[in-house]
Simulated scan of single mutants.
Amino acid sequence: MQRERGPVRVSPARAAVVGHPIGHSRSPDLHRAAYAVLGEDIDYGAHDLVEEQLPAFVDARRGDPAWRGLSVTMPLKSAAAACADERTGLGEAVGVVNTLVFRPDGTLLGHNTDVAGIVGAVRAAGAVPGTPRVAVLGGGGTATAAVAAAGGLGAPAVDVFVRAPARAGRTVEAGCRLGVPVRLRAWDEAPGALPGYDVVVSTLPPHGADDLAERAAALAPATTGVLLDAAYDPWPSALARAWTRAGGAVAPGIDMLIFQAVDQIRLFTGRGPGEPLPREQDVIAALCTAVGRPVRVVPSPPRT
């Protein structure tokens, strides 16, 4: 029997991932595996939507007791933030949301679980000092989550390498709201500079850092840092190969997807962000297995 949390919920419940294109999404595999472990009767699907279609899709499900929430992927994260009646503090600070939670009163809560996904993937990949030097590649929507994650990892500031600084204004603003100062740096400086960072997060699309990887490989730098490349298809990316050859640890974007899904699953099962799940390690193991990844364990944050 499904456990009730507050107002009675309809069973089976419903949730889904939305975005465009959506056929490649691994979210259905992840969520279905988690709900099987938890014994939750939640039917999780996928809907191909463009930005103009999202508000009507959301409004049609407001107040429906069967609907728990939506996982939101590109290019809908900004539109999803506009659909939310309320955003969590983190969702408000980052400015984009990847999660919409349908509440019993018909309102929607917006949250960003990409931040937890980045933190979890980085910590599972390698050792991170208590106050790491963090660099981010790219200044788009995912970069704002990466800046928030840098703060979560203990970074006092973050360097963001961009080709077009004028397009990174939202990332700089997010850093101000989060108390994590952002310094924009020229893209051409990245090949020589990145090996000196403890954590590097690439938020670029597939092949977006191939030129950087080629130039970095020519310099043959050494590093002990952790690279998270948010692009996971094809894998390994040119940047991941170059980073591995230089001696660094690498996390693919699929690990970020795994750990951000854990926080969504909390919300879709009536819990709060960060609230432990029953059998949480078993849930994480099931998610890893569902997408063909080794079981990941996140160590406790280092003491400072």
Rank of each mutant, 00 (worst) to 15 (best):
A82H: 11
Y232T: 05
V72W: 12
G225F: 12
L30H: 06
F268E: 15
P104N: 03
C83F: 08
V8Q: 05
L108E: 03
P12A: 07
G138Y: 04
G274R: 06
R293K: 02
G192W: 15
L212I: 12
D198H: 13
G225H: 15
L184A: 05
R9T: 08
R293F: 02
R3M: 12
G154A: 12
H31K: 13
T203V: 14
A166G: 14
L90M: 14
T244I: 14
E40C: 07
D233E: 09
P206H: 08
L227W: 10
G225R: 14
G126S: 11
G117K: 02
L109E: 04
D105K: 01
D188L: 05
L277T: 06
V18L: 13
D188W: 05
A127I: 10
D159K: 06
V128E: 11
R266P: 10
V58F: 08
A84L: 04
E51L: 15
A93L: 07
V172L: 05
D282H: 05
G151W: 03
L219C: 12
A34K: 00
V8C: 06
V226H: 05
V18H: 15
I265R: 04
E275L: 10
R61H: 13
P206F: 14
A124R: 00
D29N: 11
A218M: 13
A79R: 10
V297R: 01
A193G: 15
R279Q: 14
I254P: 00
T142N: 03
C288F: 00
S78E: 09
A93D: 08
V134R: 00
C288G: 03
A79M: 11
G23W: 14
A127G: 14
F57R: 11
G292C: 01
V97F: 06
R266M: 10
E189G: 07
G274Q: 06
T142Y: 03
G23K: 14
A251W: 03
Q260G: 00
A218N: 10
G270L: 11
G138W: 04
G130F: 11
A193S: 12
V17S: 12
P294M: 03
C83H: 08
A174L: 02
T107S: 05
A93Y: 05
A218L: 13
L100F: 05
P195E: 09
S300A: 14
F259C: 01
V147I: 03
R103Y: 03
V50D: 11
I22D: 10
N112T: 04
A217S: 13
A231C: 06
R14Y: 13
L54Y: 12
R163D: 06
V58Y: 07
P278Y: 08
L54V: 09
A145Q: 00
F161E: 05
G151T: 01
P302Q: 10
F268M: 15
A150L: 06
A222F: 15
E86T: 06
T99P: 05
R68Y: 14
